[in-house]
């Protein structure tokens, strides 16, 4: 008994040392690429800095006062929330619908399952170029098609006027990212035991009742995680919106990411940009806390 009491801890200490050694590289890289930029942003946000030279003066909380009192941040926050809510809703609706369709035993299932991933794998630049061509007010296929069908009388300025620009951005975002929802939901659908559906059929449940009473409860956990993850990713989306509208017309599709970029590299005010990004981070913290609590609960 005393032998084990003295021996085991020594072995355990050796294991612990090995463990520290093995995670050290990860910690190091993590510190360099995540912790340092985070601290640097907070540091920069209390200076007034000219971006090309990175020179400037300490201004204390001035940048934050401007954030709170000016309308730019709040306008962009509003735009970001509209964009996130709009595109996320469409992603979930189409994603779940498509996953249900692809879960059925249809003859083109395996082909369709690969094809549905196409938008997700396509480079954003390429996808946006195609969509801008489709949306073009002079020669775009979208206007042409809608006019042929008699839905439109006149060509529409899709990306240059509101609310069309926001609708366009939301649609392209939904198109680009719904495959993620499809994959995650489809993976979960395949694990729902067939017996539950059979039991429900014997219990007298029709197709609609089976969806709400068997499928949906089983999807609830995975949908919560998907919604939180996609909300975080959509909230900070940059390239798709920047390439599609550049934040315009004027600032009506300028999300927080675009605002930060505009401030830092358009107006060369790195300090103010850092303050905006810190503000944006605080908003995202809400989603992140929810996500961590959710996934923590599951494990």
């Amino acid at each position: 008994m005393s032998a084990t009491a003295t021996n085991t801890p020594r072995l355990e200490r050796a294991y612990a040392r090995l463990g520290v050694l093995l995670i050290a590289p990860t910690i190091l890289v993590f510190s360099l690429v995540i912790v340092y930029p985070l601290l640097a942003a907070i540091y920069l946000s209390v200076f007034s800095i000219y971006t090309p030279t990175l020179q400037g003066n300490f201004v204390g909380a001035d940048n934050y006062v401007k954030l709170l009192t000016g309308h730019e941040f709040w306008n962009s926050l509003g735009v970001t929330l509209v964009w996130t809510f709009g595109t996320l809703t469409l992603q979930i609706v189409f994603g779940v619908g498509m996953a249900l369709l692809l879960h059925q035993n249809i003859w083109f299932r395996s082909l369709a399952r690969s094809l549905v991933l196409f938008p997700y794998f396509l480079s954003t630049v390429v996808a946006v170029l195609v969509w801008r061509w489709l949306f073009n007010d002079l020669y775009g296929a979208m206007n042409h098609g809608l006019m042929q069908l008699g839905i439109l009388d006149m060509p529409l300025d899709w990306l240059g006027s509101m609310p069309n620009a926001m609708i366009g951005v939301i649609l392209v975002g939904a198109w680009k990212y719904f495959p993620f929802v499809v994959i995650a939901v489809l993976a979960r659908l395949q694990t729902i035991p067939e017996h539950l559906y059979e039991a429900a059929r014997i219990d007298g449940a029709g197709p609609v009742a089976r969806f709400w009473d068997v499928t949906m409860p089983q999807l609830r956990n995975v949908l919560t995680v998907i919604i939180l993850l996609r909300a975080i990713w959509d909230f900070k989306e940059f390239d798709l919106i920047y390439l599609l509208t550049g934040g315009g017309p004027v600032t009506s599709t300028q999300t927080l990411s675009l605002l930060v970029y505009q401030e830092a590299f358009g107006l060369n005010r790195m300090g103010q940009a850092a303050a905006y990004s810190v503000g944006m981070m605080l908003v995202m913290l809400v989603f992140m806390v929810l996500y961590i609590r959710r996934t923590g609960k599951e494990s």
Binding site: E198, A199, A200, I202, P217, Q218
Partner: peptide, 12 residues
């Protein structure tokens, strides 16, 4: 009515 080998109870 049917009783399944896996019981097939609705988990939620």
């Amino acid at each position: 009515a049917m009783v399944f080998q896996s019981y097939a109870l609705y988990p939620h």
